[in-house]
């Protein structure tokens, strides 16, 4: 094959960047739409939607929508609740699911194959089908808290956290990742005298950065977007998460500017989280195809 001339290479590069920019724009447009319109009064917002102006910071811009959003709903509480519930669930889930996967992959016990199959089978059950039975269970569960024995978990943080900690998908992710780790590493650690806990903590977990990032992001998105479950188990405003809080903006007269402001606010934690883990997330996606 003839070598590419510098001119040819330049054209190739330009085309490549053009395609990448186009793809980036497609993904950025909705965000831009949300952000720009959160700064405009409702009348201007509605007038702009039919033109490109909807994506541009033009016209009468202010932060009024944000101020009004805070007046209409306890936005801070909702964001705090969501971040708390999501954060605790993500951390607990990574810990519990990785431990479960560790025992499935590295420990030898009777029935592990069958149990793993059952866990994987739960992946095909939609949450909606178990929502009501689960509601009945949690409404009667006991809890030993600061106030002594309580019955029923409704209107708490724990009802939004505990049922979501263990899930088939996260366990499956860890199982697949652990299977690809060289078994000699575990054997070497065992011969060197490490207990199973030490193998988990000192050998397996430090090598699991990519799968931890993937698991964290997937879990984060599920938890942060929770709507149906908190809607039925939480009636008190002080425990409500952001998605349920969105309902506050669709009562009586819908103020689209405020909706956009609220959406902008609740998107921030997601973006921050994704950007923090982006590098590891991409590495994880890449490592599934390329041997390192």
């Amino acid at each position: 094959m003839a070598a590419l001339s510098p001119g040819n290479q330049g054209v190739r590069l330009a085309v490549r960047y053009l395609v990448l920019i186009l793809i980036a724009l497609i993904f950025i447009f909705p965000l831009l739409f949300m952000l720009m319109n959160s700064l405009k009064p409702t009348e201007q917002l509605l007038a702009d939607t039919s033109s490109l102006r909807a994506f541009l910071p033009v016209g009468d811009l202010s932060l009024d929508n944000y101020v009004d959003a805070f007046k209409r709903a306890p936005v801070g509480t909702f964001v705090f609740n969501s971040v708390l519930v999501t954060g605790v669930t993500v951390i607990a889930s990574l810990f519990i699911c990785s431990l479960a996967a560790f025992s499935f992959v590295f420990l030898d016990w009777v029935g592990r194959g069958i149990l793993l199959s059952i866990i994987l089978a739960t992946l095909i059950i939609p949450f909606e089908t178990i929502a009501i039975p689960l509601l009945l269970i949690v409404s009667k569960l006991p809890w030993f808290g600061l106030n002594g024995l309580e019955i029923g978990w409704l209107n708490t943080y724990r009802v939004q956290i505990i049922p979501w900690i263990a899930d088939g998908l996260t366990i499956f992710l860890f199982v697949q990742y652990f299977k690809d780790l060289p078994s000699e590493l575990v054997e070497a650690a065992r011969v060197e005298g490490a207990s199973w806990w030490q193998v988990y903590r000192r050998v397996i977990m430090p090598l699991s950065g990519p799968v931890l990032a993937t698991g964290a992001i997937l879990k984060f998105l599920v938890m942060y977007n929770q709507y149906l479950w908190p809607l039925i188990v939480v009636q008190e405003e002080s425990y409500r998460p952001v998605m349920v809080g969105l309902g506050y903006f669709f009562q009586l007269n819908v103020a689209w500017g405020e909706v956009m402001a609220y959406l902008s606010l609740i998107t921030l934690p997601v973006l921050a989280f994704y950007l923090a883990l982006q590098r590891a997330f991409i590495a994880s996606i890449a490592s599934t195809g390329v041997k390192g």
């Binding site: 060289p182 000699e184 590493l185 054997e187 070497a188 650690a189 065992r190 011969v191 060197e192 005298g193 490490a194 050998v203 430090p206 090598l207």
Partner: peptide, 20 residues
Amino acid sequence: VAPKDRGIAMVFQTYAIFPH
């Protein structure tokens, strides 16, 4: 007896040294 209590050390074909 568990591997660690046998008084042995093992060198593997794939080295099995911890990459981290």
